[in-house]
Nucleic acid binder design. Structure first.
Lengths: 204, 204
DNA sequence: CCGTGAACTTGTCAATGGCAAGATGCGACC
DNA sequence: GGTCGCATCTTGCCATTGACAAGTTCACGG
């Protein structure tokens, strides 16, 4: 009546930590072939369980990717907070954004992809909000110190720059002359934010 | 011996402009559900042909998306060139980049996605190079006019900013306070590139 | 011991990508 | 006119996938 109980088996019926195993397998799969180059059945095979087991934990692939994105935003939030506390510099917060994107490529590839995610997921929404607060928080000083400074547009300029840099870096679209240290590159590029135009240069 | 010739039929056996029809259908499908939310069989059905017909023109979905990306780079190249000729302003070239991304969303969503494309496609490589030349071209003046200006990092700062802004805009990640005119938003944000830091502001 | 519920397995079906053989029709050539 | 080659399609097959549902296992509480 209990075929599992009577067999010599490699592992018990219950995996025990399948959710974590699937998340890890998904991160690996994303690193190998992006968010789209694998199936839930692939993951199930990697985890050594039957093809429908992942559905219990995440519902479907969208649910799995949403969990990964939420983890990603939490990690990003912590990285930004740490950079702010260590340096008090919004530029170093920007560098930390790029650094996080590069070191957590699989998470980052998913986090800003609404087509892949459940936008109404409460954990995702909360994690996103927390990281946005960290991003914009370093701009509140600017608004307080100089009423002529537009915090909204300044913050979006900074975010756009680091987000664009990370995205272009990860997709291999930047010239190799930029080098292979993303944080050094981010610092060199961020220097041009809030810097004067070159002498004699039209453009503004 | 000729079943087609003897039937009353809605159209001839040969579609006549199936390649263009498929490209149009793909752009529409991307607008509806991104590059991943549809199949080649979907497209074949939209075009009124059999499921395997698209394979003749593009090989597979990757080939189709590669053709779309190449068209996208060509369109972007033209838009950047037009902005440069009209204004002589690298900032307006940046605004044109954002404007193109928003008005050609389907193309843009594909263009910087190496996971979806054939990187070794000659037409794609040529179109990418042409648009990169237009992007960086407006920075050559800077290097010539001020030897202290680093054209590489300055150009990447500008590109990262507009690319990040377009990407965040298209994925619905920017605050609604930014408004709904992408070019106005781009101008407001680009003002912070090469602008002095606010008075009394730490951060550099 | 029994019932419940979480965590799994097995099975089925429609849709898909990939591949290959078959069909259509036009132009060039004899 | 007939034939051939080729571009452009259609049909058919098969392995894989997502989605769904029924079935099984096992730990815990009453």
């Amino acid at each position: 009546m209990r075929p599992y109980a009577g067999l010599v088996q490699a592992r018990p019926y219950h995996h025990g930590h399948l959710r974590e195993t699937l998340l890890e397998a998904a991160l690996e799969a994303i690193r190998e072939s992006g968010p789209g180059g694998w199936s839930l059945r692939d993951l199930a095979r990697r985890a050594g369980v039957s093809h429908a087991a992942p559905a219990h934990h995440f519902g479907d692939k969208r649910g799995l990717l949403t969990a990964i994105a939420a983890d990603g935003f939490r990690g990003l939030s912590e990285a930004l907070e740490a950079a702010w506390r260590a340096s008090g510099s919004f530029l170093e917060v920007g560098v930390a954004y790029v650094g996080f994107a590069i070191t957590h490529r699989a998470h980052f590839e998913v986090m800003y992809r609404p087509d892949l995610l459940r936008r109404d997921d409460p954990a995702l929404a909360a994690a996103r909000q927390a990281s946005a607060n960290r991003l914009y928080g370093s701009m509140q000083d600017a608004a307080a110190a100089d009423p002529a400074f537009d915090a909204l547009h300044g913050a979006i300029a900074a975010w756009s720059l680091v987000h664009g840099l990370a995205t272009l870096w990860l997709s291999g679209n930047l010239p190799s002359a930029l080098g292979d240290d993303p944080e050094a590159a981010a610092r060199a590029v961020l220097r041009y934010l809030f810097q004067p135009l070159p002498k004699g240069w039209r453009g503004a």
